[in-house]
Design a protein around this nucleic acid. Structure first.
Length: 380
DNA sequence: TTGTATATCGTAGCTTAGGC
DNA sequence: GCCTAAGCTACGATATACAA
């Protein structure tokens, strides 16, 4: 297979400062920033000005500066900001999606070889020295299609996982809708809690007891992907150690969407502790099921109650144990709550299988990509 | 226990040093 | 003098520490 250095094939064009506009009309063009290389979740616009640098669908775009330097996108049209750059070629021998996928496989390398003391910048020299395998145009199309198919499978799997999350929401609404919308059977959360307790103020470090912090409280569950540790005297540990069915609430944050966010503790986190900006609620399991209360607190109704009880000062939002205790919560019969929890358990089991499958698909995709660019999959 | 100050992170974009 | 790479500042968002 033929190889060519990127330098001989592509022109690198750095972006320029672009003024974002918020009132969109037909003369506006898309403004492309780093996030747009990953998704189309938040499309921004700018005026069409001569001095701006514009990407076309046949360009590859690379994030040049910042923590995400090396992120690659392609097939996008619009003005690019100063932290992005365009890779443009006059050659008809290169299929853009092929080059895009190839450079995506080099993202990590580009990120690792960045220069800059405080903010990483792509090293132009290293980027230009990258050798691109150039099979025939037809093979490039074939490789791109194969990788797109594999990526499609990954996206489908992600959509299935998302659909299960939506199923939980629908189930919650279906089973408890009448309780949520009526004023009957409501109790103060404080009446359903045996004990509230604030977390520890000791500094987190790399050893000792696992300590849960704000980033660990995600969508009603404990996310352990960024776990820290702390050292504590035995008597403090005994007071703070978590047990299954405890609830953790975010107590303070500058963003109101974070305040009162809660997650339930599972058997896995028994013996962990939690930071001072979280509050633990040990609920009375004879009156309330953890699964139900977690879903309620994270629902539109629960969030509305929480925001009302939160206070704001110095640009930060807080909720204390008094505020939490005053939250009104609908209390359906315990057997109905437990039935809900059983159904959630089944859905979670299904979700775990899908997540394992997703991981396998992602590993397979990476290996496929490596082999394709080494020329192991297609004879040219 | 709780409110608030401060640290950290990410990034937009400006400034500056050095090569040509 | 111009251009470009790399360093730096500013600032908003978020996370954490600490004093009252």
């Amino acid at each position: 297979m033929k190889y060519m250095k990127l330098k001989g094939l592509f022109k690198i064009i750095k972006g320029k400062k672009v003024e974002q506009v918020y009132e969109v009309n037909e003369n506006m063009v898309r403004l492309i920033q780093i996030d747009d290389l990953r998704n189309d979740d938040n499309i921004k616009y700018c005026e069409r000005k001569e001095e701006y640098i514009y990407a076309t669908k046949s360009d590859v775009i690379i994030a040049w500066d910042g923590a995400n330097a090396g992120t690659i996108g392609y097939g996008l049209e619009g003005a690019i900001g100063s932290t992005l750059a365009i890779l443009r070629t006059d050659s008809n021998d290169v299929f853009t999606p092929y080059l895009g996928r190839f450079l995506q496989s080099k993202s990590k390398y580009l990120r690792e070889t960045c220069t800059g003391a405080t903010i990483p910048h792509i090293s132009k020299k290293i980027l230009e020295e990258i050798r691109i395998p150039i099979p025939s145009y037809e093979k490039q199309v074939e490789i791109s299609k194969m990788l797109d198919k594999a990526k499609e499978l990954i996206d489908k799997r992600k959509a299935q996982i998302e659909a299960l999350d939506q199923l939980v929401q629908s189930l919650f609404w279906e089973m408890f809708g009448t309780y949520l919308t009526s004023n009957r059977n409501k109790m103060f959360f404080g009446e359903l809690v045996k004990e509230f307790r604030y977390g520890t103020s000791v500094k987190s470090c790399e050893f000792g007891y696992p300590i849960l912090r704000i980033p660990n409280i995600v969508n009603g569950i404990i996310d352990e992907s960024d776990l820290k540790y702390c050292e504590l005297p035995e008597k403090d540990f005994l007071k703070l150690k978590l047990q299954e069915n405890d609830l953790l609430f975010v107590r303070t944050n500058g963003n109101p969407n974070y305040v009162g966010r809660c997650a339930s503790v599972t058997k896995k986190q028994e013996g962990y502790v939690y930071a001072s900006y979280l509050i633990r609620a040990r609920i009375d399991l004879d009156k309330m099921n953890t699964e139900y209360v977690t879903k309620y607190m994270n629902s539109v109704f629960g969030r509305h109650e929480i925001i009302q009880k939160a206070t704001t000062s110095a640009g930060q939002y807080n909720i204390n144990t008094e505020g939490l205790g005053n939250i009104l919560i609908p209390v359906p019969p315990l057997n109905l709550q437990e039935d809900f929890a059983r159904k959630i358990k089944l859905i979670d089991a299904k979700k775990a299988i899908l997540q394992r499958g997703l991981l396998e698909l992602e590993n397979m995709f990476n290996s496929l990509m490596q082999r394709a660019f080494k020329g192991e999959l297609f004879n040219d």
